[in-house]
């Protein structure tokens, strides 16, 4: 079991994620339609790319857009949650050791202390995201079970990783659970709304092109995101 999950299954999962996300990107771009979207992508590519880059850039910058600045606390929550979500697994020593053992490559690692800290950020961040959905009527009305499920999927490898790491209970059991939730996490990047990890960039780029081409960009007036 352990061997399968850390051996072939890793291959399978990674393959599915890479192929799946590539598929999303390709079909998205092919599905753009200058007539239906009313954006002249092709003839005005120059303007479009500039608009796309701006649209993504300002939204990746903490408090970089009007939208982020309008909700400063939420922005803090969002960025810490996502930074933890993305950085921790990639630069984690434990993961990298396994990576080196099987594929012979490794990325620079981060200290255990930092990894713990970031994991806690994700877990606590997840809790706040849930509380927020309960507390604010304007978010409550939008929320369905699916949204909670996504938070649970996103957070569970971190929670289980921490449990395993602190040796609470049966290490091997928690490690298996951790690895399973890890696989679920990765596969969800393709099959659930967590695919926003790529769609965020695509959708932002699209609106950026809209602004860069039609809504002012070609008039030399840049949208101030």
């Amino acid at each position: 079991m352990y061997n399968f999950l850390t051996g072939p299954m890793v291959w399978i999962t990674f393959l599915v994620v890479v192929v799946g996300l590539t598929y999303h990107v390709v079909t998205y771009i092919r599905g753009l339609d200058w007539r239906l979207d009313r954006v002249g992508y092709r003839p005005n590519m120059q303007f479009g790319l500039k608009g796309a880059a701006r649209s993504i850039f300002f939204w990746l910058l903490p408090w970089g857009s009007h939208g982020w600045r309008a909700k400063p606390l939420f922005t803090l929550l969002f960025f810490s949650f996502h930074i933890g979500l993305l950085f921790t697994p990639i630069f984690l020593e434990a993961h990298n050791i396994m990576l080196r053992d099987s594929w012979g490559i490794r990325l620079p690692g981060i200290s255990t202390g930092l990894a713990d800290f970031l994991s806690w950020v994700v877990v606590i961040g997840g809790i706040f995201l849930i509380l927020r959905r309960i507390a604010f009527p304007e978010v409550r009305i939008l929320t369905s079970a699916y949204d909670y499920l996504l938070i649970v999927i996103a957070v569970s490898p971190f929670l289980t990783g921490l449990i395993a790491r602190y040796n609470v209970g049966d290490y091997n059991f928690w490690l298996i659970v951790h690895i399973i939730t890890g696989h679920v996490w990765l596969l969800s990047l393709v099959f659930t709304k967590l695919n926003h990890a790529v769609f965020f960039f695509l959708s932002r780029a699209q609106l950026g092109m809209d602004y860069g081409i039609k809504r002012g960009g070609m008039k030399g007036s840049q949208m101030s995101w």
Binding site: D37, L142, T143, Q206
Partner: peptide, 26 residues
């Protein structure tokens, strides 16, 4: 007529409610 852009918009919405205050009708 519902291609990439609109489909994605409907599917990817994080239901985060950040758009609430932006709408004057709200």
């Amino acid at each position: 007529t519902m291609k990439s852009r609109l489909k994605t918009w409907l599917n990817v919405c994080a239901k985060c409610g950040l758009c609430a205050d932006s709408c004057f009708l709200y």
